[in-house]
């Protein structure tokens, strides 16, 4: 039992932050993020014996979290959030240009459709390879790479357009 708890604690300390961030970008509702992550870890505890390879722990936890998120939708259709009203981690003032750019990017990431946003989060936050993302999302690798291409392409275009507009205003 003690060994099980030590394994569990190691997993929580290693991955709870990444899972929190992943849930945040996945479910788009800051109020339920904590619930999803807590429930994910409770389920992980209950089925810890099924984790055979510690190297696969992160993708295993992500899979549990995705199922948990899907269950929430089955139980209750969450109120959809109006993106334009939704402030993203806007606790600090966006005074510098870098902060403003950061803020703009966050809003645009939320506006990406889920099929583009999710592989991007897995790649950038999770550090997963194309093959690993394909396995987690149960897609083929080409589809994943196409979605990643489109996700970055959309975000980059918006950011570049924004920079050009600012340049025009300043110039």
């Amino acid at each position: 039992m003690k060994t099980k708890y030590l394994t569990y604690e190691t997993l929580v300390r290693a991955y709870s932050k990444d899972l929190y961030r992943y849930a945040y970008w996945l479910c788009r509702d800051a109020n339920v993020v904590d619930d999803i992550v807590q429930e994910t870890f409770l389920r992980a505890w209950r089925s810890l014996e099924s984790l055979k390879d510690n190297n696969a722990a992160k993708s295993w936890l992500i899979t549990i979290l995705r199922r948990e998120n899907a269950r929430r939708f089955e139980r209750k259709q969450l109120d959809l959030v109006d993106i334009d009203d939704y402030e993203v981690s806007d606790l600090t003032s966006t005074s510098t240009e870098q902060e403003m750019e950061n803020h703009l990017l966050q809003r645009q990431i939320f506006k990406l459709s889920e099929e583009y946003r999710e592989p991007l989060i897995l790649q950038v936050i999770g550090g997963f390879s194309g093959e690993e993302i394909a396995s987690i999302l149960e897609l083929n690798k080409n589809t994943v790479m196409t979605r990643l291409f489109r996700a970055r392409n959309q975000l980059k275009e918006i950011l570049d357009t924004n920079s050009m507009q600012k340049g025009a205003q300043n110039g």
Binding site: S16, K17, Y20, R21, Y24, W25, V88, S89, L91, E101, N102, L105, Q106, I109, L120, I121, V124, I125, R152, L155, L159
Partner: peptide, 10 residues
Amino acid sequence: KLKNALMIDV
């Protein structure tokens, strides 16, 4: 920049 934007405070 993207990573910076995604790494929200926990």
